[in-house]
């Protein structure tokens, strides 16, 4: 048991990240892709790595208010992520719909459709907040391994 636990402590140092844009205005995506996660604030020091394929991912970042059009596609991509996985909703849109909240085309809050573990509010959230969200997700992920 002890060996298994120590292996888990090692495994938890390698969370790979996959982004799903569920109808986001791209603001949060810009924060995630070009500011928070790679060049300036560097989540690679937490062992994170962006992956091109959902099948390699451990932590799923979903941004956007989940428009009606992308619901099916988002579900299918989400199901391609192998267990154990953790979901982080980035931005205020997944929580309430943000500025799109009363639109007929929007299905937010997205936790009606996806098991959201961590919410990172903001429009867009600060890079530090996104990194904190990822760090919280890693804690949750450790229990699921």
């Amino acid at each position: 048991m002890n060996i298994l636990a120590s292996f888990k402590n090692v495994a938890v140092k390698s969370p790979w990240i996959y982004r799903i844009n569920a109808g986001s205005c791209n603001g949060c995506d810009v924060e995630m892709a070009t500011c928070a996660l790679i060049p300036r604030y560097d989540v690679e020091r937490l062992g994170c790595q962006y992956c091109g394929s959902p099948r390699h991912a451990d932590i799923v970042l979903i941004s956007g208010p989940l428009t009606r059009r992308v619901l099916d596609a988002t579900r299918r991509v989400f199901d391609e992520v192998p267990e154990p996985k953790v979901t982080v909703a980035v931005g205020v849109c997944p929580i309430s719909g943000g500025i799109f909240r009363e639109s007929y085309a929007v299905l937010a809050p997205i936790d009606q459709y996806f098991p959201v573990d961590v919410n990172v509010p903001g429009c867009p959230p600060r890079p530090q907040a996104i990194i904190e969200g990822v760090a919280k997700a890693i804690e949750i992920w450790r229990e699921r391994l």
Binding site: K13, S14, W16, P39, E44, R45, G47, P82
Partner: peptide, 26 residues
């Protein structure tokens, strides 16, 4: 990472990745 002005992952990162992958479902 250092050349790009970042902190970068620990040296043993590829090893962590390997251990992690063994925990995931295929």
């Amino acid at each position: 990472a250092r050349l790009q002005g970042r902190v970068g992952p620990p040296l043993a990162q590829p090893f962590f990745d390997l251990v992690k992958l063994s925990f995931k479902t295929s």
